[in-house]
Design a protein around this nucleic acid. Structure first.
Length: 267
DNA sequence: TTCCATGTTCCGCA
DNA sequence: TTGCGGAACATGGA
């Protein structure tokens, strides 16, 4: 489930399992996921290199190579990364495999082929090309920055939270979670928020994302007050026990509690 | 069988 | 110009 917290967990996973291991061979199973228009093959570019670190901007993960280049991974709706030792440990739907000289492997797997793999020489140029907004988990993303982003914004809060060019990293599930904790109706408008409402939304947003990362995005590890583990057909509101409702908002299905999320409810 | 799903991108509309 | 709705992409589960 790749929104910002999921991608952050993937980044930390790579940091703790796959760094400093020279790559012996690369297997691109799904060439359609490689979006480089020009330049050397992914195979040629990665063989002999090792992974040295990671960066993240919203839902995009950048893995630094030992020669200064970068492997970009985007996870679409279903992507993940896994390391394993022998071939029997390979995940289902593997689309890219790096085999290390020590015999181990790193796989990028995705059930649906909606992700993106790319070799980059310049991360900033890529971020500019996508027009990505700031990453809300960065320590320097402050309340004033958030206030400025929302200033003059029309439309729904949910739409603003999910607009990657405004803020990078929040998708459908976490926008629902944030609205839930802020007590905001899924159709609440940015213009419904007063100064205090914006501040509350900022603190809620940071808190939800940080909490999800701390829980390693494991639903069972989320605090009991979180909606995400109940975000399905007949799930109940963790606050009041009422059955959660669904509503189409900005093109996505929003889950919400009619009783606990009344602020900004359209007339 | 049909609909739906955490992603992005494109189009048309108001 | 901006935000939204809908379609498209791909594949499987309910």
């Amino acid at each position: 489930m790749p929104e910002l917290p999921d991608v952050q967990v993937h980044a930390e996973y790579i940091e703790s399992t796959a760094l400093h291991r020279p790559v012996a061979a690369v297997d691109v199973r799904e060439p359609g996921l490689v979006k480089n228009a020009t330049g050397p093959d992914v195979e040629a570019r990665l063989e002999g290199r090792s992974l040295e670190g990671t960066r993240r901007r919203g839902k995009y993960l950048f893995v630094e190579l030992d020669d200064g280049g970068w492997l970009l991974l985007h996870f679409g709706m279903t992507g993940l990364v896994r390391t394993y030792e022998d071939a029997s440990g390979e995940p289902e739907h593997t689309r890219l495999v790096l085999r290390f000289e020590d015999g181990g492997h790193l796989a990028y797997a995705a059930l649906r082929k909606l992700g993106e793999i790319r070799i980059l020489e310049d991360v900033e140029a890529f971020v500019r090309s996508k027009g990505l907004g700031p990453d809300p988990l960065k320590p320097d993303f402050g309340l004033d920055d958030f206030r400025e982003l929302l200033d003059g914004r029309r439309g729904t809060v949910k739409g603003a939270l999910m607009d990657q060019e405004l803020i990078a990293g929040i998708g459908n599930e976490y926008s629902d979670e944030i609205l839930f904790h802020a007590g905001l109706h899924p159709r609440a408008k940015v213009s419904d928020l007063d100064e205090e409402g914006v501040e509350d939304l900022y603190r809620t947003l940071r808190g939800v994302l940080e909490t999800a990362v701390r829980a390693r995005v494991d639903p069972e590890a989320f605090p009991s007050s979180y909606m995400l583990p109940h975000r399905h057909g007949d799930g109940e509101c963790p606050g009041c026990g009422r059955e959660l409702e669904r509503m189409r908002v900005v093109g996505r299905t929003a889950y919400f509690c009619r009783r606990c999320q009344r602020r900004g409810r359209p007339g």
